[in-house]
Every structure is written in structure tokens, then in C-alpha cells.
């Protein structure tokens, strides 16, 4: 029957190299990037929650908060598979939040002082806006929210959020370990049917991660020349904006670089652009992009964005075709 036959025709992609190379490449990415990334997230999450349990004011809690948030930024581009199950990624990272749902839900919680809501079971069912790193950032660093409510309840809420982050991070770690064979051993009845499908997923993650960093982590505070929006930077209250951007670009950039294996010239060019971005970020003495509001300092942040755009161009226009990932006009539109 024609219908059945047509259904069997595979979506074929031109591919790089021979099968063995791709098998090795995928295995390396999984073993050296994906799994260690989520393991680091769950380790640092547990450590952070442990210190918070001791004291909400403990300096090691703050230190491990930065470590855990950074570990998240490093894997934040891997928005597929387990990260999309049960909204686990959203539970860690509800941002951007243009309608201010996170501060709203935190204020509401702080006003109730209802400790029942803070039990792990109850808290895990709460709206994602009140959970995760961005909620914690407000609780710890927002001028009004850090002192809102009764001090004791405030600390209990901080502990509930950190516990919840640790639990979610642990779940991600476990589920990614269990999910890994789908990536390394694609099968006709598996999540991915071919290595091409796996590579396409990984490519999409790298590309979308870079886009998120350019358009949101950098684009939100930049706004327009006439209307810069420094207070829209990610985690500006804890002064982590530039740091998280750097970590995120390192995460998605490293993945892109690995995917370019097999084309030495392309790898070299991408590597150069990634290094330039890192160097420029390291030189930028402006952790929260406050400089977007003044022309002289804005120019340096715009240069950083241009470096990131240069990386994105290579990834979308050269890496995509190198992997044989079709970049159709309508296929990419998403509307």
C-alpha cells in the first residue's frame, strides 16, 4: 500500500564521515560534556542545599550558590530529553520573567508564612515561577524581597528553594544517565532512530543555547541604544550576569566545537571566535552590564554581542551544513 510504503521512507540527511566517526563523536560528547555537566550540577546543588540547611547566612552557602548556578548555566542549552520531562529545566530556571511572576509569587508566599507549603512534596508542586535559581536570587539579593516577611520564615523558604533545586538537579542527573544510551545507541524503536537524529538534536541544542545567550542574556540588558535596560540583565542583583553569560556560552560553544570535528578549518575558526569572546568577556569590567546606558561603555558590550553573533553565524551557516542538518526557510521559522 502506497501510504505504508511512503511512511517507511526515511528523512535522509547528507552526513559527515563514516559511521564509526559519528559513533565516537556522540559517545565523547555524552561522556565528556553531557553527563559530567549534569553530575556537576547535582553535586553543587546538594552542597549548596547542605550549607543553606546549616545557616541561611553561611558564606559557604553563598559560594556554593554561585557554583550551582554556574553549573546550571553550563548545561542550560541541553533543553531536550530529561530536561523537558516534567518541566525539570523550568523548575530550575524560570527566566526571563517579563510579567514579574517570580517576585509576585515569592511576595505572596512570604506574606502567608505558611510553613506547610515548604515541605518538599508541597513545594515541588508549586508554580515553577516560585522555584529554582531565579527565585533564590531574588530571595537572597533583591532589596525588598530579601527582607520581606518574618526572618525565620524567609530563611525556611530559602532552604525549601535550595532543597528543591538539589532534588531537581539530582533527578536531572539520574535521568540523563538513564537517557544516555538513547543518544549513544540510536535504534529504530528508540527515542532517536539514527545517529543523524542524535546529531541534529545536539546541533539544535548548541544553536538554540547560543541564541538564548545572545538575544536574552545580552540582548535584554542592551535593549536599544535609545532605551537600554540594565535591570533586565540576568541575575543582576547577585552581580552574576556576565559570569553566567560566559558559562553558558562556554557550555553551548564547547558542544558546537566538538560537533565540528572532522572539519579542521571550521573547528579552528570556531575555536578562535570562542576564545575571542572569552577574552573580551574577561576584559569587560562590568559584571552586570550596567554600562549599556552610557555610549562609551555600551560600545564594549555591543562588541561582546558582535563576537557572540560571529560564533552564531559560523554555527548556523557552516556547522549546520557540515552536519547535514537541513536549515529550511520554513522548517526553521517555528511559527
Amino acid at each position: 500500500m502506497r501510504w505504508m510504503l511512503a511512511g517507511l521512507v526515511a528523512m535522509c540527511l547528507p552526513v559527515m564521515g563514516w559511521t564509526g566517526e559519528r559513533t565516537t563523536l556522540i559517545r565523547q560528547i555524552v561522556d565528556q560534556e553531557v553527563l559530567p555537566g549534569f553530575a556537576a550540577l547535582s553535586r553543587s546543588g546538594a552542597r549548596m542545599a547542605g550549607w543553606a540547611e546549616l545557616s541561611c547566612e553561611h558564606p559557604d552557602f553563598r559560594y556554593n550558590y554561585v557554583a550551582a548556578f554556574s553549573a546550571w548555566a553550563r548545561v542550560s542549552h541541553l533543553r531536550f530529553g530529561p530536561s523537558e520531562e516534567d518541566n525539570l529545566a523550568f523548575a530550575l530556571a524560570f527566566w526571563p520573567d517579563p510579567r514579574g511572576q517570580t517576585p509576585k509569587s515569592l511576595r505572596k508566599l512570604l506574606a502567608t508564612s505558611d510553613t506547610d507549603l515548604l515541605s518538599p512534596d508541597k513545594f515541588g508542586e508549586m508554580s515553577v515561577a516560585a522555584r529554582g535559581f531565579y527565585a533564590l536570587d531574588l530571595l537572597l539579593f533583591d532589596d525588598t524581597i530579601q527582607s520581606a516577611g518574618m526572618a525565620e520564615y524567609h530563611c525556611a523558604l530559602v532552604q525549601a528553594v535550595t532543597r528543591d533545586i538539589a532534588t531537581t538537579a539530582q533527578q536531572l542527573d539520574d535521568r540523563w544517565s538513564a537517557f544516555a544510551p538513547n543518544l549513544t545507541d540510536p535504534a529504530p524503536d528508540g527515542v532517536y532512530r539514527t545517529e543523524d537524529e542524535v546529531l541534529r538534536e545536539l546541533f539544535k541544542a548548541a544553536s538554540a543555547g547560543l541564541q538564548f545567550s545572545a538575544e536574552l542574556r545580552l540582548g535584554r540588558p542592551l535593549g536599544t541604544f535609545e532605551n537600554p535596560r540594565p535591570k533586565r540583565a540576568e541575575a543582576w542583583r547577585s552581580r552574576l550576569s556576565l559570569h553566567l553569560l560566559t558559562e553558558a556560552v562556554r557550555g553551548s560553544g564547547t558542544l558546537a566545537l566538538r560537533l565540528s570535528a572532522g572539519d579542521a578549518a571550521l573547528s579552528a575558526r570556531l575555536d578562535r571566535k570562542l576564545r575571542r569572546f572569552e577574552a573580551r568577556a574577561a576584559e569587560l569590567d562590568d559584571p552586570v552590564f550596567a554600562g549599556v546606558s552610557a555610549p562609551q561603555s555600551r560600545i564594549r558590550i555591543e562588541a561582546l554581542r558582535e563576537d557572540l553573533e560571529a560564533i552564531r553565524r559560523i554555527v548556523d551557516q557552516e556547522l549546520g551544513p557540515h552536519l547535514g542538518v537541513s536549515a529550511g526557510f520554513n522548517a526553521l521559522d517555528g511559527d
Binding site: 502506497r2 501510504w3 511512503a6 511512511g7 521512507v9 528523512m11 537541513s326 529550511g328 522548517a331
Partner: peptide, 26 residues
């Protein structure tokens, strides 16, 4: 389905009739 490069044609009650494979069909 532009991402799959395929269009599905059904009858008005949703019974599949045929496929058209064409890159970026939309």
C-alpha cells in the same frame, strides 16, 4: 510539515490518503 519535508493528505474524516515528500513544504 516543513521540518520533516512532507505533507500529509487525509480525507475529511482524517483517514490518511497519501504523502507528498518535498523539502521545506509549508
Amino acid at each position: 510539515g516543513p521540518r520533516g519535508g512532507v505533507a500529509l493528505i487525509t480525507d475529511a474524516s482524517g483517514q490518511p490518503q497519501r504523502l507528498i515528500e518535498q523539502p521545506d513544504i509549508c
